[in-house]
Simulated assay, not measured.
Amino acid sequence: MTKSSRSFAVVGLGAFGSTVAAELARFGNRVIGLDLDEKRVAQMSNTLSSALIVDTTDEGALREAGIDRYDVALVAVGRDIQASILTVMNLKLLGMETLWAKASNKTHHRILVKLGVDRVILPEQEMGRHIAQMLNNPVLQDYVSLGNGFSVVNVVIPQRMDGRELASLGIGTTHDLRLLGLMRGSEFRHPTDDMRLAPEDKLILLGKRAELRLFGDSL
Rank of each mutant, 00 (worst) to 15 (best):
D58L: 08
E59K: 08
G60F: 05
A61G: 02
R63H: 04
R63Y: 02
D68T: 09
R69C: 06
R69E: 10
Y70I: 00
D71Y: 03
A73I: 04
V75H: 06
A76N: 10
V77A: 08
G78N: 12
G78C: 09
A83H: 13
S84K: 11
L86V: 10
T87H: 10
V88A: 07
V88W: 12
M89H: 06
M89P: 02
L91R: 08
K92F: 07
L93D: 13
L93Q: 09
G95F: 03
G95E: 02
A103T: 14
K106H: 15
K106W: 12
H108D: 08
H109K: 15
L112G: 14
V113W: 06
L115I: 11
V117W: 10
V117S: 10
D118G: 03
R119L: 12
V120L: 08
V120I: 06
E124L: 14
E124T: 08
E126L: 08
M127C: 03
G128C: 05
R129W: 05
R129Y: 07
H130W: 06
I131S: 00
A132K: 06
A132Q: 09
Q133M: 09
M134D: 01
N137Y: 06
P138R: 14
L140G: 06
L140C: 05
G149V: 00
G149W: 00
N154Y: 11
V155Y: 07
V155P: 04
I157F: 14
I157T: 10
P158F: 11
P158K: 11
Q159W: 13
R160M: 14
